[in-house]
Write a protein that binds this DNA or RNA. Sequence first.
RNA 1: GUACCUGUAGCUCAGCCGGAUAGAGCAACGGCCUUCUAAGCCGUGGGUCAGGGGUUCGAAUCCCUUCAGGUACGCCA
Length: 568
Amino acid sequence: MIDFKIKVAELIFESVKDMTIEEISSSLEAPQNPKMGDCAFPCFKLSKLMKKAPQVIAGEIKQLIDGNRGEFIDKIEAAGGYLNFFFNKSSAAESVLNAILSEKENYGRSKAGGGKCIVIDYSSPNIAKPFHVGHLYTTFIGAALYNMYEFLGYKPFGINYLGDWGTQFGKMLYAYKHWSSEELVDKDGLAELTRVYVKYSAEAETNPALDNEARLWLVKMQDGDEEALRLWKTFRDLSLEEYNKCYKRLGISFDSYNGESFYNDKMAAVVEELHAKNLLVEDNGAKIVRLDEYKMPPCLILRSDGGTLYPTRDIASAIYRYKNYNFSKALYITDARQSLHFAQWFKVAGLMGYPFESDLVHIPYGYLMLEDGAMSTRKGNYVTADTVFNEAAARVKAVINEKNPELEHKDEVAEQVGIGAVKFVILYNSRIKDVVFSLDKILSFDGETGPYVQYTHARASGVLEKAGRDDFANPDYSLLSDDDSLSIVKLLSQFTEKVEEAVQKYEPYVVTRYVTELAQAYNKFYHNNKILQAEPGLRKARLALTYGVKTVTASALALLGISAPDRM
RNA sequence: GUACCUGUAGCUCAGCCGGAUAGAGCAACGGCCUUCUAAGCCGUGGGUCAGGGGUUCGAAUCCCUUCAGGUACGCCA
């Protein structure tokens, strides 16, 4: 397809030698008011270089390039220091829709990534604890970025860095031994483990001796005690089994489940290396790396009892991943409270001489609270992910029964729309905002929501289905010259650049908002124009446009991990 | 105390590598289903872009500062 932006940039470049073609291209913008044009070049920066008023420059450029603007631009106007380009509606529609008609669901894909590996560390729940709404942000953002990188020609590698080792397991083992049993765990699974963990936390408040007992269990694990390891493995297997049910429901899978325990035997080498490179300093019995020079508190590597810490393990894992996956970037998707931790150990990796320091990226997201306060597994104040999805599906089913009682496969559609609604809300705003989790807010289905976009897709599908197959090949694109059609065509042409922007910002919402805009544009078009009842030529052109909307909507939703049912 | 994040319409948020009249959804109010799915479309009202300085031809956007809310700062992860 024609990239209009590049065409315009090339055209301007013919007469403006003070800027590179890339500079021109990146300064191009879309006027807020479409009546002012489809693409605008601001001349204010040139005004400094050329020492002339921007209005004058715009006029001069217009004079120079107007003659050979080609057939894809109808008109060039100089207005208020801007140079405004009006696309030829027919050739715009033709280039975009022809590309979609031939490339179908591959439309928009790019090879720009060149197969470079992007390691994405996401989801990463602590095993033996429930998978709750607090895990949804990292899980959905990670999965969406994974899809987008793949779409752009990278080779993403998803790692679920399970929290499967550490002091919490000492507590868990103590709690299990005292208050639970194999039968109870068989019966209730993670819920039972969580029950005794919550009990432990409550008891430990008043009885500090428990923590010593728990520590003994951890020591047993570290020393390879048979019973401790057997229980640990049982809990780990059980957790993975339950998580995988949930991941399957969400359509998410990982390339690796190497968790914290995987690095148990890889940390000693890191400590040794830090020591050899003279980075370790003893302080109050602990070993630290000083970071004063970088205006950060020191990074703790070894406890005073010789035990390792979170940063030690993360450095070991980064080195392992670099050696084994040769990543060009490694993304860590965690909540913003861990920002300092990541900044610290990234710096330590750099001080160790690892060149990949600059390729390590922490992608923080905001704090998620429940309506009745902070979420805490320890205190038993949490909402499991399944609870939310079940409720979502149930509410969607009620809407289906009301609006479309004849629908087939109601349960399946309710599941797709319900889960889509939850994903959509979470991927709709910038990550960093703190959120109060409210079922009622997440599960409203009007306006800028997942169901709205899915509904639009189902509408388009319905029209195409009624039209019959291939009824829209080789249409007369000049019939799509109205404003409603053109705004859709412009949006369709922006698909790839929106995905690129999302990846560049590590913000899936760019795509979420894009697909919402596309849905709004199509709904407006749909309302104002007959499609199936239009006269044959027009009908064909509008069906091609409808096909474009359906295809790109489904692709964009797929990038977000959201299904696009054909009926709902 | 130090550092980071946030502050835009009643609510939830876009816009922030400076550019044309600050946008959207929800909520409120008023219209549109004998016509391709009304989970839709159209309209009305609603703003000191937290406050104050500065840089600039031009600031919601960049810099400084104050305020408000949140978070993190040695043996948890």
